[in-house]
Simulated assay, not measured.
Amino acid sequence: MSEKVALVTGAARGIGLATTKLLIEDGWRVAMIDRDADELSLASKGINGASPFVHDVSQPDDVDAMIDAVHASFGRIDAVVNNAGVADFGPIEETDFARWRRVMDTNLDGVFLVSQAAIPALKETKGALVNIASISGLRASTLRVAYGTSKAAVIQLTKQQAAELGEYGIRANCVCPGPVRTKLAMAVHSQDIIDAYHDAIPLNRYGSEREIAEVITFLCSDKASYVTGQVIAADGGFDSTGVGLPALRS
């Protein structure tokens, strides 16, 4: 069994939780990070090999404390999965600066802060950064001026990290999930949206959290030892079609 350690942000639910479980199946130990203490406590119960840490990735001092706590607990960090994010959608004319900053604080600043703080530990292990962006960072869509822009910036940040950190043996890659069948998505997507996605996605379905986690876990692993600076759309072919969805315009 590997003794490698992964730090996963936004680990209390969704893709972060699915990634945590899959990494543990593959022999990793996992530091589960989330700012929702109650949800994190529930999610981490019964997961052997994982430890919960309550921190907010948008706060610089809290991020430094988080890295110190994880390193003190596990002794090393081999991979960082920057998954924490907020989904705040709305028309462009209704997006004020407060909403813009709320999205950027977590989706972009959080990725930057966690990555920067983890660099010394990743240098020691020649580890991996895996940043979770979105299909919305690759193709424009309505209601996503802040969200889509934040995710596009994460894609560019990943490329910068790959270019500058490669000399230390640190790999940096980005995963862009397409529509995923999460509880949140199913709660807010109307039947028209569900039907439109079905028609627009070449595989004719939403992805699962586990399917996204499989890509993330691969990029963390030694199987991807010569893969860096890549942006992988795990989206059922949605990006390749380049067609907008009328059902998402309101």
Score class of each variant (00 low, 15 high):
Lys151Phe: 02
Arg76Tyr: 00
Ile216Tyr: 08
Lys151Asn: 04
Val63Trp: 03
Leu165Val: 09
Asn83Gln: 12
Ser190Gln: 04
Leu108Phe: 12
Ala79Asp: 03
Glu39Phe: 08
Ala65Glu: 12
Arg210Ala: 14
Asp109Gln: 08
Val30Arg: 00
Arg102Lys: 14
Ser115Asp: 06
Ala152Lys: 07
Lys183Ala: 13
Arg139Met: 12
Ala37Asp: 15
Ala196Glu: 15
Asn48Tyr: 12
Ile15Lys: 05
Met104His: 08
Ala18Thr: 07
Ala43Ser: 14
Val215Thr: 14
Met104Gln: 09
Tyr147Met: 07
Asp26Cys: 10
Arg101Pro: 00
Gly46Met: 10
Ser134Pro: 01
Ile15Glu: 04
Ile155Trp: 01
Cys174Glu: 05
Ala185Gln: 11
Pro246Phe: 05
Asp68Arg: 13
Val81Ala: 09
Glu214Asn: 12
Gly16Glu: 09
Val103Cys: 01
Tyr168Val: 02
Glu39Lys: 15
Ser115Tyr: 00
Leu129Arg: 01
Leu17Thr: 06
Glu214Phe: 04
Ala213Lys: 01
Cys220Glu: 04
Asn48Cys: 13
Val130Thr: 05
Gly16Trp: 00
Ser150Cys: 05
Arg205Met: 09
Ala187Val: 07
Leu203His: 15
Ala163His: 08
Asp96Val: 12
Ser136Trp: 03
Glu3His: 11
Ala72Thr: 13
Lys21Asn: 13
Val86Pro: 00
Pro202His: 13
Pro179Asn: 09
Ala79Ile: 01
Ser44Gln: 11
Phe97Val: 15
Met186Phe: 14
Val180Lys: 06
Gly46Phe: 11
Asp64Pro: 00
Leu42Lys: 15
Gly46Val: 09
Ala172Tyr: 01
Thr149Gly: 13
Cys176Asp: 02
Gly90Ala: 15
Leu138Trp: 06
Val145Tyr: 07
Ala152Ile: 08
Leu165His: 07
Leu7Cys: 02
Thr158Ala: 03
Ala65Pro: 02
Val215Lys: 02
Leu42Cys: 15
Asp38Ser: 15
Leu108Thr: 05
Ile201Ser: 04
Ile67Ala: 01
His55Thr: 03
Ile135Asp: 00
Met1Glu: 12
Asp239His: 06
Ile170Gly: 00
Asp36Ser: 08
Leu108Gln: 01
Glu211Gly: 08
Met186Gly: 11
Gln59Pro: 04
Leu7Asp: 00
Asp56Met: 07
Gln191Leu: 08
Ser51Phe: 05
Ile24Tyr: 02
Val243Leu: 11
Gln160Leu: 13
Ile201Gln: 03
Tyr226Ser: 12
Gln191His: 10
Val175Asn: 09
Leu108Arg: 00
Ile193Val: 15
Arg13Cys: 10
Ala153Phe: 07
Ala213Asp: 05
Ala162Thr: 06
Arg139Tyr: 04
Ala140Met: 11
Ala185Met: 14
Leu40Asn: 05
Ile170Arg: 01
Lys183Met: 10
Ile194Pro: 01
Ala72Glu: 14
Gly14Val: 04
Glu94Lys: 14
Thr142Val: 15
Lys45Arg: 15
Asp88Cys: 08
Met66Thr: 05
Phe89Ala: 13
Ala12Leu: 10
Leu219Gln: 03
Asp61Lys: 13
Glu164Tyr: 11
Glu94Thr: 11
Pro179Ser: 12
Thr125Leu: 06
Ser150His: 02
Met104Thr: 09
Ile194Asp: 02
Ala172Ile: 08
Cys174Ile: 02
Asp222Thr: 11
